[in-house]
Design a protein around this nucleic acid. Structure first.
Length: 270
DNA sequence: CGCCAGGACGCCC
DNA sequence: GGGCGTCATGGC
């Protein structure tokens, strides 16, 4: 990644980033595609900072109204710019299916998101589809002035008071998660540093968090890139292309490989 | 009408 | 330990 400062904007050169593939691929649910003169443009936020970001062409981007300090401290980390995705894709590509997936959606990066927001978002994601997940999270944030609620705020709610979300049976799971995090019974920062089996065990103590959601929180909210969420789409990939098991060489970064495969298989059938 | 969606729970055996 | 019905909601 290289960047230059132009007025209030940061211009970024990064060959391994595509906004559509990264911000609208089911790892994050709060980025909104904007009408613009550019190739692609999104608005969204991370923690308490909002951002408008434009993609000019395949490898040039504008981070609008962003100071160099905020860019380096916050957004560079969020977009995982310190990781060399070209090297990852080269390594993955010794496998035929992964090579095709990396070629198909080479602009995917793994966002370093907030663990709390990920926990609630992926609880909402269960047995649900992406447009409706986004709608529920929209209504949730709208209710708190456009910001994602804190654990304390959500811990004050009940399944009844959350009926405006229309999240169905998931509302009681949201309340349980909020209560545990707000009380400190579940310490997400501590879980993020645990050996992964302990972390899985801790996350699954939360009502509504099973193997898939726990894996998504580890991967997307704690950047544990060895985590490997298996949903209906990845099940199809494993059955169709990896009947003998997922290749050993990719297991340290299985979660990143999973992102390429998820995007690949989903768009293959469209 | 039924089927499915980035699943998990409760109950059964 | 695995198998199966059920759980809200909404789009197709």
């Amino acid at each position: 990644m290289e960047y230059t400062i132009k007025g209030n904007d940061i211009h970024v050169f990064e060959p391994d980033l595509d906004l559509d593939e990264t911000l609208d691929c089911g790892q994050a649910f709060r980025w909104k595609k904007a009408e613009s003169e550019y190739f692609s443009e999104y608005t969204g936020s991370f923690l308490n900072d909002s951002l408008r970001i434009s993609q000019l062409d395949k490898e040039n981007f504008i981070f609008h109204n962003t100071s160099e300090e905020d860019f380096l401290r916050k957004w560079s980390d969020y977009f995982d710019f310190a990781t060399d995705y070209s090297a990852l894709k080269t390594a993955f590509s010794q496998d035929e299916t992964l090579a095709a997936a990396c070629k198909f959606a080479g602009g995917i990066r793994l966002l370093r998101q907030d663990s709390w927001e990920c926990l609630i978002s992926f609880i909402i994601s269960q047995n649900n589809n992406i447009p409706r997940i986004k709608g529920i999270i929209d209504r949730l944030c709208e209710h708190y002035g456009g910001k994602f609620p804190t654990p304390l705020q959500l811990a004050a709610e009940t399944p009844d008071s959350l009926s405006y979300l229309r999240s169905g049976f998931r509302s009681k799971y949201i309340c349980d998660a909020a209560g545990r995090v707000a009380s400190g019974e579940t310490d997400l920062n501590a879980i993020a540093e645990m050996p992964i089996e302990d972390a899985r065990k801790q996350l699954k103590m939360i009502l509504g968090v099973g193997p898939k959601v726990a894996e998504c929180v580890l991967l997307f909210g704690m950047h544990r890139v060895e985590a490997f969420p298996i949903d209906v789409w990845i099940k199809r990939v494993l059955a169709q292309y990896y009947p003998e098991g997922f290749p050993e060489f990719a297991k340290d970064n299985a979660g990143i490989a999973q992102q390429y495969l998820f995007h690949y298989i989903r768009n293959l059938s469209e």
